[in-house]
Design a protein around this nucleic acid. Structure first.
Lengths: 197, 197
DNA sequence: GCAGCATCATAGCAATGCTAGACATTGTGT
DNA sequence: ACACAATGTCTAGCATTGCTATGATGCTGC
């Protein structure tokens, strides 16, 4: 490949990322309903068709934003878990990190977990960052338990419920920490469950 | 008011309900993105402007569908709770009823809890059926506990997470009953929580 | 039976996602 | 160095969306 072709590819990749970032920022600033192809094109200082040379449509842009978010979420959960090696506190830290992520970047969180998507979860073509994020929850439970995945699913579901209902104004956003504390206490602390965590 | 005026009001109320039902059925059959004002108008065999003489816009129709759903959900949860008087089983029954409601009528559930809405939750102008549904969860916990509302919030959040993630294909729909069993076991069965439920 | 009014539909607006074609600008071969 | 090809970009437009102003229709009340 010639040098100029490489340069063009670089520029193209840059623009690709620029579009994703612009969509994300615009959504975070004014909500996803404000992210139209025209406004997005104006923001990246190109015309609309350029968007379609990079993505298969608005849906695909959304997917790209979501996948980027999966990577960041996985990294964040991992950091939280490794920073607190004691298992019970680790679970608590990971859950808190999850909720912080959701509240600090609500639009990104919506793209990942609320808006309709074609991204495959728990599937062969699942984006690795997504699987990695989920595995952080799994890692909070004893490795000898055959029901680790179940525990992780329920924990994740509960957190998602809290995040989603809070963000959409369906439960008061204030009580989040109390709810979090209660949740992990219940998940971590009973003999019928992941005992002696 | 004259008799004919009464008749017209009756017809008007009928049409009002007809629109709500049509929107709900159409959404249940093809998803909310297929519910356009034109298709809805065609389905009720009126022209579009008629919709706007009944509702302030598409959003308002959605709200009406959601409120109708709140009533049905509250009734369903109530039946489930009263059918099983023992407290621990009652919680389990109510939670199962909630998940069944969500899976049997996914579009209705979305209108109530996923789609953006202006409906006020935990507020003065909260629709009574919604408050009633939430109270069914509260009633599953001992009346002397000052943290009943917290327990109910977390339980509801967890259930919503399971329902939402399952419906959008983000967790496999199969394990729902196992997740449900685990969840209520954890919520109901620890000394740090609603002990001896 | 006729004036007046409420009711409804036709037609149209701005904005949306998306695409076809013209237009440059850039790179290539002689 | 110059004409030609190819790549990339924009202008203009289509169909569809939510919503509304205007005009036709039919019923009500005198």
């Amino acid at each position: 490949m010639s040098a100029i072709a490489k340069r063009r590819e670089r520029e193209r990749a840059q623009r690709h990322q620029l579009i994703i970032t612009a969509a994300r920022e615009l959504a975070e600033a004014e909500g996803w309903e404000a992210v139209t192809t025209r406004r997005l094109a104006e923001r990246v200082e190109y015309s609309q068709p350029v968007l379609y040379s990079h993505f298969d449509g608005k849906e695909a842009i959304l997917r790209a934003v979501a996948v980027e978010g999966f990577g960041e979420l996985a990294a964040r959960l991992r950091r939280a878990r490794l920073a607190t090696p004691e298992p019970p506190q680790a679970l608590h830290a990971v859950c808190r990190a999850y909720l912080e992520f959701a509240t600090e970047q609500p639009a990104l969180y919506q793209a990942m977990f609320v808006l309709p998507t074609d991204v495959k979860f728990a599937h062969a073509e699942t984006p690795p960052p997504l699987r990695a994020a989920f595995d952080e929850f799994v890692s909070c439970f004893p490795s000898d338990s055959p029901r680790r995945e179940l525990f992780a699913e329920v924990t994740w579901s509960a957190l998602h419920g809290m995040a989603a209902l809070s963000d959409s104004g369906r439960i008061p956003p204030n009580g989040q920490t109390e709810r979090l504390d209660f949740l992990v206490a219940q998940i971590a602390g009973t003999s019928s469950g992941p005992a002696a965590l």
